[in-house]
Write a protein that binds this DNA or RNA. Sequence first.
RNA 1: GGCCCCAUCGUCUAGAGGCCGAGGACACCACCCUCUCAAGGUGGAGGCACGGGUUCGAAUCCCGUUGGGGCUGCCA
Length: 561
Amino acid sequence: MRARGRGRPGRPALHDGRHGKMLRLRCRHVGDHRRRAAAGWLWLHTGFSGGAVHARGQAHPDLRGHQPDPAGRHRQQAVGVGVALDTRSDGPRVRFAPSPTGYFHVGGARTALFNWLFARQQGGSFLLRIEDTDTERNRDEWTEGIYGALTWLGLDWDERPVVQSERGRLYSEAVDKLVAGGHLYYCDCTREAVDARTRGAATPGYDGFCRERRLGPGPGRALRFRTPDEGSTVVSDLVRGEVVFQHATIEDFVLVKSNGAPLFVLANAVDDMDMGVTHVIRGEEHLPNTPKAILVWQALGGPRLPVFAHLPVLVNEKRQKLSKRRDPVALEDYRQQGYLPEAMRNYLVLLGWGPADGQEIMSLDDMVRAFRLTDVTRSPAFFDVRKLTHFDGEYIRAMSPERFIEACQPWLESGPWAPSAFDPEVFARMAPLVQERVATLAEVPAMVDFLFLDRAPIEEASWERAVAGDPAAAALLDDAIASYGTCPWTAEEIRGATLAVAERSGKKLAKAQAPIRVAVTGRTVGPPLFESLHLLGRDRTLDRLRAARDRMPIVGPDLID
RNA sequence: GGCCCCAUCGUCUAGAGGCCGAGGACACCACCCUCUCAAGGUGGAGGCACGGGUUCGAAUCCCGUUGGGGCUGCCA
């Protein structure tokens, strides 16, 4: 069977492919059970997720980018912060649940993207939850950063974000229920005491010391969850199949801190239940505590468990998980380095997933159409900024000139020139030439600074190479000064004049233009020279050529005369 | 150490037992184009970790080895 329903061109009735895939998922792996339960659930959903999915599946690739966003535009999206719109539909409900403990992370962005794509594609809801139960480490500004980052990426969310710090009552009700059910017990062991007892033990972790002590509440006493001694819990994972954890290997973990604050596993399970979350899509680092969450969920008498999908982690060049501490991961930093949100999200979608047709540059609509959660890769992905940069260049070149100029504004405002010297009209005329030469917006100022600076920003290495290192440079500059003084001042005429200068010097134009370029723009590389000179103006061009001439040491024949 | 996950060019991926002599993208190299630099075009180098098994046939299924990673908090 071939049809995989991934929107390959030329394949009719792609929705049949989708169904084929689902059917296949349900019946493959007969022997090993991988993905079976999970796929069955997904099947249910695609079964009633409506015509939108099928209509998308039939979209012709040529229409790419020219269609209305099929992803649930009928639903009124609240873009921005805190707009409550309860549009609870029958579709799957996913949530992105970041913790505001620092700058928003590219890994978080990838997780958010995958959640968003799945929700939009399945006609479901993408919910937001701020996991700020650790009051020591959370700051409001980080929370704002989450909203800002998602908005920057173009990911809108449904309903009002859930903020855990505002839901203490929900958690204490859950705790009461768990206590009543005999699932929790108080524990006053310190970390040190546990360590001392379990040193060298076969099973590390908490040893159940307080299980039968029947301690009541009190200062310094945390609540632990009594895990089963036997049996196992199976995590049904859309990416990894069924992962089995033996209960004997799961320690009695703390659910409530001794100060009464709920911990991650508790708040997580309670909220997923309360929010009606059907699919938990998150980083693989959460896989080991998923059985704990399932145990809590079941102890709470929760309904049907969500389906899990643990995405591969993002790693650095040493293949370690990307970390705030040692790796450049802040989305905000990438924004400030001149990366476009569309390039970022396009790059991000390819980390852990790839389109079957190989077409990697894709719009958000393309992604919604082509993305398949069940096709997510299992191995860690290296965040390669070089490829990101390439994508950024692609997106910059694809912009309209107007949009490009608009996008450049923040970088132009902080250019190395005096603000009053900046001329928007001059920049606008140079912009198209710059646009096709930069890979990030941050490179723009260095391409145009010579236009707005009093003098050429001479780069020493360039000077050495093209002027000081060329014995013919002096004569060449002298000739250029003479020629430019009289030729009509258009790019084409300047080119002609320069060609004549080159011929008189016995050089090719490519070689002859180098000292002129450095004298006027300060660098050996940059936008096309003749347009640059034209925009700079005859007087300033001549001034700079003379200044360069003055800067040169008097050598050679000049001394003899 | 324990538990769990993972393994296709340097990197990200396509791959669902025969369409694979393994495809694409980034990066790299060469050439073309060219006023520099880019962009673009053409071509190139480069990979199924290893060992068993199943099968007429394995990148693909199974087992093992090795290697990498995650978790192992009163963080999330």
